[in-house]
Design a protein around this nucleic acid. Sequence first.
DNA 1: CTTGGAAAGTCAATAAAGCTGACGTATTGT
DNA 2: ACAATACGTCAGCTTTATTGACTTTCCAAG
Lengths: 168, 168
Amino acid sequence: MSDGPQAQTGQSLLFLTDEQLRKGIEAMFFAYRGFTADPDRILAEKSYGRAHHRAIHFIHRSPGTTVNNLLSILGVTKQSLNRVLRTLIEDGLVASTVGQKDKRERHLHLTADGAELERALSDAQRDRMRAAYRKVGPDAVAGFRQVLEAMMDDQTRHHFEAMKERTE
Amino acid sequence: MSDGPQAQTGQSLLFLTDEQLRKGIEAMFFAYRGFTADPDRILAEKSYGRAHHRAIHFIHRSPGTTVNNLLSILGVTKQSLNRVLRTLIEDGLVASTVGQKDKRERHLHLTADGAELERALSDAQRDRMRAAYRKVGPDAVAGFRQVLEAMMDDQTRHHFEAMKERTE
DNA sequence: CTTGGAAAGTCAATAAAGCTGACGTATTGT
DNA sequence: ACAATACGTCAGCTTTATTGACTTTCCAAG
């Protein structure tokens, strides 16, 4: 699998042509679409959308998070998140409990059903990612992660780093 | 910048934990959002959306492409694409010409104005990607591209490969 | 203890972008 | 001649987002 001039190492990257960059842009577009395809199918069956998936994902990763916190991570408006959150709570996938220290806050957790759905969704994505990782090897994976982090907004990277520290 | 256990090379990848995979999933989410943020701002000014961006991008990359071809690349319905295409043609960014060989086909091209907008949009993304590439170096970039390609659907990768061959 | 502001929830209106289904027209190919 | 293809379009629907305005509850500072 020859990968074109940009894989020749070192020097060639100093001549980053628009064409090479454009291919990176497209790879990002196509890969992201493939990346969301599996969960989308599962979600469609339950008539949920990506918004629900994102909420479930971040509640799973940060149990007890507040609505405001979720808002700043997801970068959407309160109204948008609330519509999603309401259906998840009604359907018994997410539990909302009043804060002990600050009673204005609601702390969000996944219920057993919610955790089950989270599992199904992330299994699908993990399988795809695991397959990709296995295919290309650890060095490529390290590079992948480095580029992704470098492409994030500063504020976004801050969210990401903060969560990394919690678990790594 | 230590990058956790998965950067330790070789062996560690055989123990791909769910946590490590989940971080890859999130990095993908955050990076994609950062990646589309710049063009989104430009598009919002002209009251266009991402759908317009995608159409412009692929018409630029494959000048003279037909509607059906664009449909299969973008993976949307005829009606969805048509709504976007109509506004682009009305606004004078895209030209649609009747096919010479097969007069049922319409061949799509960017006008001067269309090319100008394409340039503005891709410049924003290229700058971000160039910055990321410069930051992490050529080996990481090669790995990045390899993982992205490995994550695509087979059919999608076929689109991507086909276009690669045209230019590389 | 009052009051300002923060956290959350909600109502209404709007928009972008996708979908399905049904049709019509021009053109091609069998 | 006739079926199939490529395109365009009409109508109606859904999801996901937006903004603006408002209420309730609650914390904390003056």
